[in-house]
């Protein structure tokens, strides 16, 4: 029996954790299915919430899309640690020599992937449902801002879901913590989408919002790195 202690590499730990999350999701398909359905239902409600069946909501496309995605994100982020908590696996993970930041990164990457799959459905549906005028030629720009926003959502979401994990009534706590922090993401995401949809493109405006989102992601990344050790430090 060797006495040498293995030095686990964090890249392998990260890959293992992501593989585990994706395997679980592939087997149960709970999270992504719920997110996609929820977002379509929400979009449908929006038309009636903002007008009648005849009203043209092109002007509000960005807002409709990002309000929907924000609520969908809360739903998806809320599922982050469900398997660990319900099946009581967290102690096993925490007793292993994995840096807590690697846990965070794995969860965040899983959320980015789930959000991207949801957006694969939401972005075309928004175009079909709401936009009268040019939309499809700027779909690349919308995808880009969505990608950046997903990183923002994943970073702040993972931090808040870690905080909500052991609270009473955590399903209520998470939206209360998470949504105020999402307001800037909704503002910037909606603004950037608005800038490239349904009329002449305003690229300087689009760039400004994207840069803001990059700043958001960097700030929350720093907060996560600084505090995530303490989230799981009982």
């Amino acid at each position: 029996m060797s006495m040498a202690v293995n030095r686990p590499r964090w890249t392998r730990q990260l890959a293992g954790l992501i593989r585990k999350d994706l395997r679980l999701e592939l087997r149960t398909k709970e999270t992504v299915m719920a997110m996609v359905l929820f977002s379509i239902v929400t979009l449908t409600i929006m038309q009636f919430g903002f007008g009648t069946r005849d009203d043209d909501l092109t002007r509000f496309t960005g807002g409709l899309m990002w309000v929907t995605l924000a609520f969908t994100a809360v739903l998806g982020v809320g599922r982050s640690y469900v398997a660990e908590r319900e099946q009581r696996v967290l102690d096993g993970i925490l007793a292993s020599p994995v840096p807590r930041v690697v846990l965070l990164a794995a969860k965040a990457i899983a959320i980015v992937i789930y959000m991207a799959i949801t957006e694969l459905v939401v972005i075309p549906v928004v175009g079909i449902f709401f936009v009268k005028g040019p939309y499809w030629d700027s779909i690349g720009w919308i995808a880009l801002v969505a990608l950046i926003a997903n990183v923002c959502i994943a970073l702040s979401g993972t931090l808040f879901s870690g905080l909500a994990l052991f609270t009473r009534a955590r399903d209520l706590i998470l939206p209360v913590l998470f949504l105020p922090a999402l307001v800037p993401v909704v503002i910037a995401g909606a603004g950037a989408t608005h800038a490239v949809v349904g009329g002449p493109h305003d690229m300087s405006e689009y760039r400004g919002y994207c840069l803001f989102l990059v700043g958001y992601a960097i700030l929350f990344l720093l907060v996560c790195i600084a505090t995530y050790d303490a989230v799981f430090d009982d």
Binding site: P8, R9, Q13, G16, R23, S96, P97
Partner: peptide, 13 residues
């Protein structure tokens, strides 16, 4: 699959 995860976490050769 469970053991594979833990092998990754502990860096098992």
């Amino acid at each position: 699959q469970n053991l594979q995860l833990y092998a990754d976490l502990f860096g098992v050769q």
